[in-house]
Design a protein around this nucleic acid. Structure first.
Length: 444
RNA sequence: GGAGGGCUCGCAUAGCGGCCGAGUGCACCGGUCUUGAAAACCGGCAGGUGAAAGCCUCGUGGGUUCAAAUCCCACGCCCUCCGCCA
């Protein structure tokens, strides 16, 4: 909002600014008038209030008949104060609503005019001459497809138009851009954010080495993806739903990763197909009130690198063990004590037929807390999402499995608490040091 | 989703409906003393708005009352305990 004092003192500047923007100039006088009315009402109210304060004090001090008389006076005055206060509130609201209409005051150096009236400040670089190079440039959509970098078709399938997956070098390019940008604005108090980038980079680079295709998926998906992965059953109350558009915010990239191949028949010879998705995750946490409200153990939004496998049903059990092993490798690299549990039946998600959780030791809670989870969904999701594979035996439903490689906030909790020193500094696990460029987090 | 406790001037606390915009301790600032420091002692010490008088602010918003930090209602946040998640 603009500064009303400035407006009072420089109405012409504001008028000129409004005019330059092509916006309502008359509003300036409207605001001035309502501001005057407001200020008069405030003064009136404050004077009455001052009287009331004085009178009130004398009521407290008085007694007997004198008090009765004063009370009658006070009562009358209280009515006036109330009326004046109501008037003040009303005029204040009016003045505010008028003032909110005015746009920010233009920098006098900003060019005046419409979209066409921009001023070119400089040209940098020379547009490349493709014709002399002898070929016509392809657009980014075509290149993205050729490089396996951008997938707008599957984006549309899962999340509608204007949605996309970044896959392979596309995802790597995003990480590189982020890292380059971040490395240029490095400062020590940002170690929290840096730790996230380091964890993600470490996770993605190890997953890539293990043959996972890195993916940055959409986090906004259509109902089919949510339904197909089994999140609209019991888990529905934990899901954010955008009613106006009938989109869902995913609670895990498992959803867009599974739906990536929705309604497709995959080549059996290329299985298992493994993806490592990095995305924000959104959870309503309904029904968890009062639990873990402290800190970042349980939050509405967090980032996570999730592993996802498509494989033949007969290989699913083995694949499940592999996912678990990668999770253990990660925890080992973070040098954090943990335990692995075989989750009991009543605690399985609706899509899973078996689930292993890794729980990291959290010293201040004197407990192991869940940091990763890997589920074998066998062909359950595959059927719901209509994903099949074809080999010499014919076309069959595919098995899917998922596992957390790293859920950022909980891993940050585990690292900070387990690797802290007496003075509050924190040692960085060796595996992250190359990604962070430091061996210890210092006090700010 | 449910039960209980809390939210007051940087921190910690006190606060009977009027004598409370608010006491005390610590911290902080200035001074006395001291070669210097500590200690002790003296003084100061919340913010907004307004030219000023004044008005407003005790988590936020309503209400009761002549008068609310104090009573009532709603909400927010924090803490403790039970059924779900990375």
């Amino acid at each position: 909002m603009i500064d009303l004092k400035f407006l009072r003192e420089n109405p012409d500047v504001v008028r000129a600014s409004q005019k330059g923007r092509g916006e309502d100039v008359a509003i300036v006088d409207k605001v001035l008038a309502s501001d005057d009315a407001k200020r008069a009402a405030i003064t009136e109210f404050e004077q009455l209030r001052a009287q009331q304060n004085v009178l009130s004090k004398s009521v407290g001090a008085a007694s007997g008949e004198e008090k009765v008389a004063l009370l009658a006076n006070s009562k009358e005055l209280a009515e006036k104060v109330k009326a004046a206060d109501a008037k003040r509130a009303e005029l204040e609201a009016t003045a505010l609503s008028h003032a909110m209409v005015i746009s920010n005051i233009l920098d006098p150096e900003a060019p005046i005019g419409g979209e066409e009236d921009f001023v070119v400040i400089e040209h940098v670089g020379t547009p490349r001459d493709f014709s002399s190079a002898g070929f016509a440039p392809k657009d980014h959509v075509e290149l993205g497809k050729l490089l396996g970098a951008i997938d707008t078709e599957r984006g549309a399938k899962v999340s509608g138009s204007r949605s996309y997956y970044l896959t392979g070098v596309g995802a790597l390019l995003e990480f590189a851009l982020v890292n380059y940008a971040i490395s240029r604005s490095y400062y020590l108090t940002g170690v929290g954010a840096l730790l996230e980038f380091a964890l993600v980079n470490y996770a993605i680079s190890s997953a890539t080495k293990a043959g996972f295709i890195p993916v940055i998926p959409p986090v906004l998906v259509k109902p089919a993806a949510m339904e197909g992965t089994g999140f609209l059953g019991q888990a529905a109350e934990n899901v954010y739903h955008l009613e106006k558009d009938d989109y869902y915010l995913v609670g895990t990239s498992e959803v867009p990763l599974a739906a990536f191949h929705m309604d497709e028949v995959l080549d059996g010879a290329k299985l298992p197909l493994r993806y490592a998705g990095y995305s924000s995750c959104f959870r309503r946490e309904a029904g968890s009130y009062g639990k873990d409200t402290r800190g970042i153990i349980r939050v509405h939004q967090f980032d996570k690198v999730e592993m996802f496998s498509f494989c033949k049903p007969e290989e699913a059990k083995q694949e499940h063990q592999r996912l678990l092993q990668w999770e253990k490798d990660f925890l080992n690299a973070m040098e954090i004590p943990y335990r692995v549990i075989d989750v009991a039946s009543g605690d399985l998600g609706s899509s899973a037929n078996r689930k292993f959780d890794i729980e990291a030791w959290i010293p201040t809670q004197d407990a192991y807390r869940e940091v990763t989870s890997t589920s074998n969904c066998t062909e359950f999701q595959g059927r719901r999402l209509n994903i099949r594979y074809k080999d010499s035996d014919g076309t069959k439903a595919i098995a899917t499995l998922n596992g957390t490689l790293v859920a950022i906030p909980r891993m940050i909790v585990a690292i900070l608490e387990n690797h802290q020193n007496a003075d509050g500094t924190v040692n960085v696990p060796a595996a992250l040091q190359p990604f962070l460029g430091m061996t210890r987090f210092e006090l700010v």
